[in-house]
Simulated assay, not measured.
Amino acid sequence: MNKNRQMKEAKVAEIKEKLEKAQAVVLASYQGLTVEEDTQLRKSLREAGVEYKVYKNSLVTLAAKELGHEGIVPFLEGPVSIAFGYEDATAPARVLNNFAKDHKKLELKAGIVDGTIYGSEEVKKLASIPSKEVLIAQLLGSFKAPLSNFAYLINAIKEKNEAGSAE
């Protein structure tokens, strides 16, 4: 087997591993971004814990077909980047969508979340879901509010009873 084929097979194996490991994968067209914009995008993705790669479409196609994700193959045309979210399933979509709002050259193409393939509109909807940390904070806040109100009520009753007994 020649060295070129071995390198390609290793790349396909790497892509397959990343696709399997990721909670969410988002494909985006980045054609027209400047080097400075691309650097800024990569920094934002890195800060969100998202891995961002550009692979040959033919290699991604092979890996996707081996994993049964043939549905993303039509989106692998032209320059396509891939964002892999391992910790937060909404992070790749959220960061790419926020960046695309200010940089019209970046276009969300498709995504895979838990094995389900979504088009660009569904990926944009996914981007609007808050991160896991924000959702947990909101949940805890909703628990705290009734408890705080209850404690305030008990304290008010206690103060009223103390005021009534002082008279």
Rank of each mutant, 00 (worst) to 15 (best):
A166L: 03
M1T: 15
A91G: 01
L33R: 03
I112Y: 08
L135G: 03
V73Y: 04
K3A: 10
K11G: 15
T61L: 09
Y118W: 09
K56R: 05
L76I: 08
L76D: 00
L106C: 07
A10I: 10
I157Y: 09
A22H: 00
I157W: 01
A151S: 03
G85T: 00
K8Y: 04
G78H: 01
N161G: 12
A110N: 01
G119A: 08
Q40F: 15
D88W: 05
Y152S: 15
K43A: 11
L59S: 05
E37M: 11
V54G: 05
E122F: 09
Y52W: 09
A64K: 00
G164F: 14
S81N: 01
N2W: 12
V60I: 14
S29F: 08
K124A: 09
G71M: 08
K132E: 11
A89G: 14
N161Y: 08
V12P: 01
G68C: 11
I72G: 02
E14Y: 10
T39K: 13
N4D: 11
S81T: 03
A100F: 02
Q23L: 03
E121W: 05
A13K: 10
N57Y: 03
S142T: 09
E133R: 13
E87C: 07
E121Q: 08
S128W: 11
N57K: 03
P146V: 06
V113T: 08
K158F: 02
I112P: 00
A127R: 02
L106M: 13
S128E: 14
N2L: 14
E47H: 11
T34N: 13
E20H: 14
A83V: 04
A91T: 02
P79R: 05
L59G: 10
K8E: 07
A145R: 02
A151R: 12
L19V: 10
I154R: 09
L108A: 01
P146C: 01
L27S: 02
A91P: 01
E51H: 15
A145T: 12
H69C: 10
L139Y: 07
D102C: 07
N161D: 15
A13S: 10
A93E: 00
L96A: 04
S165A: 14
E14A: 12
L67I: 06
K3R: 15
I72N: 00
G71H: 07
G71N: 01
V60N: 15
E36P: 05
S131E: 04
S142F: 00
L96R: 02
T61W: 04
G49L: 08
E70K: 08
I15R: 04
Y152N: 14
S165E: 15
R5D: 15
L147Y: 06
L135C: 06
A163Y: 13
N97C: 01
L27G: 00
V25A: 04
G85R: 07
G141K: 01
L67C: 05
A110S: 01
S131W: 06
I112C: 08
E36R: 11
V134K: 02
F143M: 10
K21P: 06
T116K: 10
A163V: 06
Y152A: 11
G85A: 04
L106G: 00
V25I: 05
N155Q: 11
K125M: 11
P146L: 07
V95Y: 12
E37H: 10
